[in-house]
Amino acid sequence: MSFDVLISQFLGGLSVAMLLFLVASGLTLIFGVAKVFNFAHGSFYMLGAYFSFQAINLFNNFWIGALAGAIGAGLIGMVLEICFIRRISGREEEGAFQILLTYAFILIIDDGVKFIWGPAYKTISKPESLAGALTVGPVTIPTYNLFIILLGLVIVVTAWYVLSRTRMGKIIQAASTDTQMVGMLGVNVSLVMSLLFGVATAMGGLAGAMAAPLRTIAPGTGVEIIIDSLIVVVIGGLGNFWGALFAAILIGEVNAFGILWLPQWASLLSFAVMIVVLIFKSKGLFTREQGRKKI
């Protein structure tokens, strides 16, 4: 196999990885950091794509579409948090109920989308400014993919900075584990959680809008992406953005090269990777092992 093929396969895998990371980053925030299991995260990704499709139809501008995707998904996310998710917090078996509730969101959003936009798939095209391709030596990469890779890097650096270097980040980190303590400090914890949910779903929506030109927009796409995103978040170690980035690249590349060497089994590789990782590192790759709980 020639070197060129390997390089272009690698770059292809990287773009897939970055798209995956865009979705998984929102999930890392809400599931990893805030400890809310949002099974419907992929559905917000799908909603983002549909909103951007709708906005592009109206305004004929890709960037307005992206904005609409993010804001629309974020707003719906916040409403759902306030109306439902918030009200079951603190319950016994909260985790199971969160899974169930957000699973219900998946079903409702899927059918809602079908009802509004119909079952047929939609497409949008790349913005003209990014429609070209960049050629370096023997390798060509579409400008849009480069842009996605850059966007992923911007997100991981921003998230890392906000979470570990700002006061806001400390509050966010503590809000889910030391809820009472943070409340005592005069922080409105439920407002923080709603905003967090909104930001996370907006990130999902943005990812959907960004992925739309490369993939199709159709009902059910949210369900496909959520499992892969969960894999990424879990492999990376819950709540760790760099870990999620690494895991996304791992999954992206394993898939890209898997198609070359094991074409028939490529779609199973993500699961195989997760199984291997969890068997050897029971809390993902980048989680610090915590001491035993106090008794």
């Binding site: 969960l230 879990v234 819950l238 089994w265 699961f271 997760m274 969890l278 809390k283």
Partner: peptide, 25 residues
Amino acid sequence: LRLSDVYFTMLTLAFAQLVWGITIK
């Protein structure tokens, strides 16, 4: 079962999906 909470849940999910995939392929 060596895994705790959500990791257990995810691993069981992965095993089932893997077998599903193998059955299809």
